[in-house]
């Protein structure tokens, strides 16, 4: 490395006297929120661990969708693929992986700033902590929604092209609700990741809680008797999410509209808890 030698810094400090810097008009709260969003946009797309990972998650969704579709057993009832009862669900099989990666990206965007101490700089510079939370949610949410929806659409179209199963394939225009449902679900998972990052302030804690609470926890609860789990299992974010994403609702799932509301309540509720805790705690 050649970092040892530095050019001699300029001696003079600044360009203008201190007194002249406050003459510009006071920016509005809306303007400052716009600035904060631009800042988070720059931060998100200038670090590989978040930006490249998100794109990789999108590509993985498409790739796994094509693989699952290409090898789909003509006799769906013969194996585990029985759960995937139609070509669209098969093509979206990669979402199960993408949701974990995207949730982790959400955690990293926040917990990464806590681990370096950058979050303090961000809070002090932006001035409002809720504005910081909102800006991160907007940037990550918009990026994930765009990439997640595009990936779902790509997985459906390309999956259909290579589909090897028995059932008739469907056109993208017929399953737009599922495609957008997938985009919304992935966006919500990313926002839950952000909320957990702010609540737990640690990468390990955030990822652990996300994976354990959102992805693995519901499967463990499945071991309980149906009489118990039937009551509340469908209200968990992952279950409400699958109800949003699947083309055919089963009897133990919420309807698509209800599922959307339940899922949104989780996301908004967790972000709300994050906002309250962040406001109350020392940074």
């Amino acid at each position: 490395m050649t970092t040892a030698t530095l050019p001699a810094p300029t001696a003079s400090a600044t360009t203008r006297p201190a007194t002249s810097s406050q003459t510009t008009a006071k920016p509005t709260a809306l303007r400052r929120t716009g600035w904060a969003i631009r800042s988070e946009w720059i931060k998100f797309w200038t670090v590989r661990s978040t930006s490249v990972t998100l794109i990789a998650a999108g590509l993985a969704t498409i790739a796994f969708g094509m693989i699952f579709s290409a090898v789909a057993d003509s006799d769906a009832a013969a194996g585990p693929a029985a759960f995937l009862s139609n070509p669209v669900d098969v093509a979206l099989g990669g979402v199960g992986l993408a949701e974990m990666i995207i949730g982790v990206v959400g955690v990293l965007v926040v917990a990464g700033e806590y681990s370096t101490g950058l979050i303090r700089t961000t809070f002090a510079a932006v001035g409002s902590r809720s504005r910081v939370i909102a800006s991160k949610a907007v940037v990550v949410g918009a990026s994930v929604f765009a990439i997640g929806t595009a990936a779902a659409a790509g997985a459906v179209v390309l999956g259909q092209a290579v589909y090897a199963g028995n059932e008739a394939t469907v056109a993208l225009s017929e399953v737009l609700d599922v495609v957008f449902g997938t985009g919304i679900y992935l966006t919500g998972i990313a926002l839950i990741g952000i909320a957990l990052g702010f609540i737990l302030r640690s990468t390990a804690g955030g990822i652990g809680t996300l994976v354990g609470g959102v992805f693995i926890g519901p499967n463990l609860l499945n071991l309980l008797p149906d009489s118990i789990t039937d009551v509340f299992l469908k209200y968990l974010p992952s279950e409400a999410g699958s109800a949003m994403m699947s083309q055919v609702s089963t009897s133990d799932q919420l309807s698509t509209g209800t599922a959307l509301g339940v899922f949104a309540a989780w996301v908004i509720g967790l972000l709300g808890v994050a906002a309250i805790l962040v406001q109350r705690r020392d940074a």
């Binding site: 931060k43 200038t46 670090v47 590989r48 661990s49 990464g112 700033e113 370096t116 101490g117 950058l118 303090r120 700089t121």
Partner: peptide
């Protein structure tokens, strides 16, 4: 506040 408060890959 802290000189290291920068994401290392940025």
């Amino acid at each position: 506040l802290e000189a290291g408060a920068v994401h290392p890959s940025r």
